[in-house]
Nucleic acid binder design. Structure first.
Lengths: 106, 106
DNA sequence: TAGTTATATCAATCTATATTGATATATACT
DNA sequence: AGTATATATCAATATAGATTGATATAACTA
Protein backbone atom coordinates (compact mmCIF):
# COMPACT_ATOMS: atom_id res chain seq x y z
CA UNK A 1 0.00 0.00 0.00
CA UNK A 2 1.28 3.43 -0.87
CA UNK A 3 2.16 5.55 2.13
CA UNK A 4 0.46 8.93 2.42
CA UNK A 5 2.89 11.83 2.93
CA UNK A 6 2.87 13.43 6.35
CA UNK A 7 3.91 16.98 7.21
CA UNK A 8 6.33 15.83 9.90
CA UNK A 9 8.80 14.36 7.42
CA UNK A 10 11.69 16.41 6.03
CA UNK A 11 11.02 15.73 2.39
CA UNK A 12 7.37 16.49 2.81
CA UNK A 13 8.16 19.78 4.52
CA UNK A 14 10.05 20.81 1.40
CA UNK A 15 7.16 19.67 -0.76
CA UNK A 16 4.79 21.59 1.45
CA UNK A 17 6.81 24.76 1.01
CA UNK A 18 6.69 24.32 -2.75
CA UNK A 19 2.99 23.61 -2.68
CA UNK A 20 2.34 26.74 -0.62
CA UNK A 21 4.36 28.79 -3.12
CA UNK A 22 2.35 27.32 -5.98
CA UNK A 23 -0.94 27.95 -4.20
CA UNK A 24 -0.09 31.53 -3.32
CA UNK A 25 0.65 32.19 -6.96
CA UNK A 26 -2.54 30.71 -8.36
CA UNK A 27 -4.88 31.83 -5.54
CA UNK A 28 -5.23 35.18 -7.20
CA UNK A 29 -8.17 35.89 -9.45
CA UNK A 30 -6.24 37.66 -12.19
CA UNK A 31 -3.54 35.02 -12.33
CA UNK A 32 -5.93 32.09 -12.32
CA UNK A 33 -7.84 33.78 -15.14
CA UNK A 34 -4.61 34.20 -17.08
CA UNK A 35 -3.73 30.53 -16.60
CA UNK A 36 -7.25 29.55 -17.60
CA UNK A 37 -6.94 31.58 -20.78
CA UNK A 38 -3.49 30.23 -21.60
CA UNK A 39 -4.47 26.62 -21.02
CA UNK A 40 -6.55 26.83 -24.18
CA UNK A 41 -3.65 28.10 -26.30
CA UNK A 42 -0.92 30.64 -26.86
CA UNK A 43 -1.70 34.34 -26.32
CA UNK A 44 0.20 37.62 -26.51
CA UNK A 45 0.07 40.15 -23.68
CA UNK A 46 -2.35 42.47 -25.47
CA UNK A 47 -4.71 39.55 -26.03
CA UNK A 48 -4.70 38.91 -22.33
CA UNK A 49 -5.17 42.41 -20.97
CA UNK A 50 -7.89 43.20 -23.49
CA UNK A 51 -9.63 39.90 -22.89
CA UNK A 52 -9.49 40.14 -19.11
CA UNK A 53 -9.96 43.94 -19.00
CA UNK A 54 -7.00 44.76 -16.83
CA UNK A 55 -4.08 47.22 -17.18
CA UNK A 56 -1.18 46.11 -19.38
CA UNK A 57 1.51 46.62 -16.76
CA UNK A 58 -0.43 44.56 -14.24
CA UNK A 59 -0.74 41.71 -16.73
CA UNK A 60 2.99 41.89 -17.46
CA UNK A 61 3.66 41.78 -13.75
CA UNK A 62 1.50 38.71 -13.20
CA UNK A 63 2.98 37.00 -16.26
CA UNK A 64 6.42 37.50 -14.78
CA UNK A 65 5.34 35.88 -11.52
CA UNK A 66 3.84 32.94 -13.38
CA UNK A 67 6.86 32.57 -15.63
CA UNK A 68 9.41 32.90 -12.81
CA UNK A 69 7.71 29.98 -11.14
CA UNK A 70 7.72 27.94 -14.33
CA UNK A 71 3.95 27.75 -14.78
CA UNK A 72 4.08 29.39 -18.22
CA UNK A 73 6.62 29.83 -20.99
CA UNK A 74 7.08 32.58 -23.59
CA UNK A 75 8.52 33.21 -27.03
CA UNK A 76 8.98 36.40 -29.00
CA UNK A 77 7.26 37.07 -32.30
CA UNK A 78 8.17 40.51 -33.59
CA UNK A 79 7.11 43.07 -31.02
CA UNK A 80 4.77 40.61 -29.41
CA UNK A 81 5.54 38.08 -26.72
CA UNK A 82 3.47 34.92 -26.80
CA UNK A 83 2.76 33.03 -23.61
CA UNK A 84 1.76 29.40 -23.17
CA UNK A 85 0.86 27.34 -20.13
CA UNK A 86 3.50 24.82 -19.04
CA UNK A 87 1.06 21.97 -18.70
CA UNK A 88 3.50 19.44 -17.31
CA UNK A 89 4.67 21.74 -14.50
CA UNK A 90 1.11 22.68 -13.58
CA UNK A 91 0.06 19.04 -13.48
CA UNK A 92 3.01 18.14 -11.26
CA UNK A 93 2.06 20.85 -8.79
CA UNK A 94 -1.61 19.90 -8.65
CA UNK A 95 -0.67 16.27 -8.07
CA UNK A 96 1.64 17.28 -5.24
CA UNK A 97 -1.19 19.31 -3.76
CA UNK A 98 -3.45 16.27 -3.78
CA UNK A 99 -0.93 14.42 -1.64
CA UNK A 100 -1.46 16.95 1.14
CA UNK A 101 -5.22 16.90 0.95
CA UNK A 102 -6.41 13.49 -0.10
CA UNK A 103 -5.53 10.25 1.74
CA UNK A 104 -3.53 7.93 -0.49
CA UNK A 105 -3.70 10.25 -3.48
CA UNK A 106 -1.98 8.68 -6.47
CA UNK B 1 -15.60 15.73 -26.74
CA UNK B 2 -15.92 17.41 -23.39
CA UNK B 3 -15.72 21.18 -23.50
CA UNK B 4 -13.10 22.81 -21.31
CA UNK B 5 -14.52 25.55 -19.05
CA UNK B 6 -13.60 29.07 -20.00
CA UNK B 7 -13.42 32.07 -17.69
CA UNK B 8 -15.70 34.14 -19.90
CA UNK B 9 -18.79 32.08 -19.09
CA UNK B 10 -21.14 33.06 -16.25
CA UNK B 11 -21.20 29.67 -14.55
CA UNK B 12 -17.46 29.41 -14.77
CA UNK B 13 -17.03 32.85 -13.25
CA UNK B 14 -18.95 31.63 -10.23
CA UNK B 15 -16.82 28.48 -10.11
CA UNK B 16 -13.72 30.61 -10.41
CA UNK B 17 -14.77 32.73 -7.44
CA UNK B 18 -15.32 29.57 -5.39
CA UNK B 19 -12.00 28.15 -6.48
CA UNK B 20 -10.20 31.36 -5.52
CA UNK B 21 -11.85 31.26 -2.09
CA UNK B 22 -10.77 27.66 -1.65
CA UNK B 23 -7.22 28.41 -2.78
CA UNK B 24 -6.87 31.45 -0.51
CA UNK B 25 -7.89 29.29 2.43
CA UNK B 26 -5.48 26.43 1.75
CA UNK B 27 -2.55 28.54 0.48
CA UNK B 28 -1.49 29.15 4.03
CA UNK B 29 1.19 27.02 5.60
CA UNK B 30 -0.51 26.54 8.96
CA UNK B 31 -3.84 25.66 7.42
CA UNK B 32 -2.43 23.25 4.86
CA UNK B 33 -0.51 21.55 7.67
CA UNK B 34 -3.72 21.25 9.68
CA UNK B 35 -5.54 19.74 6.71
CA UNK B 36 -2.62 17.38 6.10
CA UNK B 37 -2.76 16.25 9.71
CA UNK B 38 -6.53 15.82 9.69
CA UNK B 39 -6.58 13.87 6.44
CA UNK B 40 -4.98 10.97 8.33
CA UNK B 41 -7.64 10.95 11.04
CA UNK B 42 -9.57 12.80 13.71
CA UNK B 43 -7.69 15.16 16.05
CA UNK B 44 -8.56 17.48 18.92
CA UNK B 45 -7.33 21.07 19.04
CA UNK B 46 -4.62 20.37 21.61
CA UNK B 47 -3.28 17.56 19.42
CA UNK B 48 -2.98 20.00 16.57
CA UNK B 49 -1.34 22.94 18.30
CA UNK B 50 1.12 20.73 20.13
CA UNK B 51 1.91 18.75 17.01
CA UNK B 52 2.35 21.81 14.80
CA UNK B 53 3.89 23.98 17.55
CA UNK B 54 1.61 26.97 17.19
CA UNK B 55 -0.49 28.95 19.69
CA UNK B 56 -3.85 27.47 20.65
CA UNK B 57 -5.90 30.51 19.75
CA UNK B 58 -4.31 30.67 16.32
CA UNK B 59 -5.18 27.02 15.69
CA UNK B 60 -8.76 27.64 16.80
CA UNK B 61 -8.94 30.59 14.47
CA UNK B 62 -7.69 28.61 11.48
CA UNK B 63 -9.98 25.70 12.32
CA UNK B 64 -12.91 28.11 12.23
CA UNK B 65 -11.89 29.33 8.79
CA UNK B 66 -11.59 25.75 7.53
CA UNK B 67 -14.87 24.69 9.10
CA UNK B 68 -16.80 27.77 7.92
CA UNK B 69 -15.80 26.84 4.39
CA UNK B 70 -16.84 23.22 4.89
CA UNK B 71 -13.39 21.69 4.51
CA UNK B 72 -13.48 20.08 7.96
CA UNK B 73 -16.15 18.93 10.42
CA UNK B 74 -16.15 18.71 14.21
CA UNK B 75 -17.81 16.87 17.10
CA UNK B 76 -17.59 17.38 20.84
CA UNK B 77 -16.19 14.77 23.21
CA UNK B 78 -16.23 16.10 26.76
CA UNK B 79 -14.12 19.23 26.90
CA UNK B 80 -12.43 18.33 23.68
CA UNK B 81 -13.52 19.12 20.15
CA UNK B 82 -12.49 16.62 17.54
CA UNK B 83 -11.92 17.74 13.98
CA UNK B 84 -11.96 15.66 10.79
CA UNK B 85 -11.29 16.51 7.17
CA UNK B 86 -14.37 16.62 4.94
CA UNK B 87 -12.84 14.52 2.21
CA UNK B 88 -15.70 14.80 -0.25
CA UNK B 89 -15.76 18.61 -0.12
CA UNK B 90 -12.00 18.83 -0.49
CA UNK B 91 -12.03 16.48 -3.46
CA UNK B 92 -14.78 18.48 -5.16
CA UNK B 93 -12.75 21.66 -4.81
CA UNK B 94 -9.54 20.14 -6.12
CA UNK B 95 -11.39 18.73 -9.11
CA UNK B 96 -12.91 22.14 -9.82
CA UNK B 97 -9.43 23.63 -9.63
CA UNK B 98 -8.18 21.18 -12.23
CA UNK B 99 -10.80 22.44 -14.65
CA UNK B 100 -9.19 25.87 -14.58
CA UNK B 101 -5.65 24.61 -15.02
CA UNK B 102 -5.66 21.50 -17.11
CA UNK B 103 -7.18 21.23 -20.61
CA UNK B 104 -10.05 18.76 -20.67
CA UNK B 105 -9.65 17.81 -17.01
CA UNK B 106 -12.14 15.12 -16.08
C1' DT C 1 15.68 58.95 -37.96
C1' DA C 2 11.31 59.77 -36.00
C1' DG C 3 7.10 57.81 -34.65
C1' DT C 4 4.24 53.97 -33.18
C1' DT C 5 3.10 49.73 -30.97
C1' DA C 6 4.08 46.05 -27.60
C1' DT C 7 6.01 44.80 -23.41
C1' DA C 8 8.61 45.32 -19.02
C1' DT C 9 10.17 47.58 -14.79
C1' DC C 10 10.10 50.42 -10.68
C1' DA C 11 8.57 52.97 -6.63
C1' DA C 12 4.65 54.21 -3.95
C1' DT C 13 0.23 53.20 -2.13
C1' DC C 14 -3.44 50.43 -0.77
C1' DT C 15 -5.61 46.34 1.13
C1' DA C 16 -6.39 41.94 2.98
C1' DT C 17 -5.31 38.93 6.43
C1' DA C 18 -2.10 36.37 9.63
C1' DT C 19 -0.62 36.78 14.19
C1' DT C 20 -0.63 38.20 19.04
C1' DG C 21 -2.38 39.09 23.71
C1' DA C 22 -6.11 39.19 26.59
C1' DT C 23 -10.20 37.27 27.83
C1' DA C 24 -14.52 34.52 27.59
C1' DT C 25 -17.00 30.13 27.64
C1' DA C 26 -17.78 25.39 28.49
C1' DT C 27 -16.99 20.99 30.52
C1' DA C 28 -15.09 17.91 34.01
C1' DC C 29 -13.38 16.92 38.63
C1' DT C 30 -12.83 17.24 43.85
C1' DA D 1 -18.96 25.85 44.77
C1' DG D 2 -14.27 26.22 43.29
C1' DT D 3 -10.49 24.79 40.35
C1' DA D 4 -8.42 23.03 36.22
C1' DT D 5 -8.47 21.97 31.38
C1' DA D 6 -9.98 22.67 26.55
C1' DT D 7 -11.60 25.67 23.20
C1' DA D 8 -13.32 30.06 21.21
C1' DT D 9 -13.58 35.05 20.47
C1' DC D 10 -12.13 39.79 19.94
C1' DA D 11 -9.44 43.95 19.20
C1' DA D 12 -5.00 45.58 17.85
C1' DT D 13 -0.86 45.15 15.26
C1' DA D 14 2.11 43.53 11.73
C1' DT D 15 3.04 42.21 7.11
C1' DA D 16 2.82 40.44 2.53
C1' DG D 17 1.56 41.40 -1.78
C1' DA D 18 -1.86 43.45 -5.35
C1' DT D 19 -2.57 47.57 -7.79
C1' DT D 20 -1.41 52.06 -9.80
C1' DG D 21 1.18 55.65 -12.30
C1' DA D 22 5.14 56.82 -14.52
C1' DT D 23 8.66 55.48 -17.32
C1' DA D 24 11.93 52.44 -19.86
C1' DT D 25 13.07 49.20 -23.56
C1' DA D 26 12.54 46.90 -27.87
C1' DA D 27 10.86 46.10 -32.49
C1' DC D 28 8.52 47.45 -36.52
C1' DT D 29 7.09 51.20 -40.07
C1' DA D 30 7.07 55.40 -42.83
Amino acid sequence: MKKAPCCTHKKTNKDLTHTIEFLKIISQEQRLKILCLLKNGEHCVCDIWQHLDMPQNLVSHHLKVLKDYGLITSRKDGTKVLYTIHEKAVTQHTQLLNHFLIPYAN
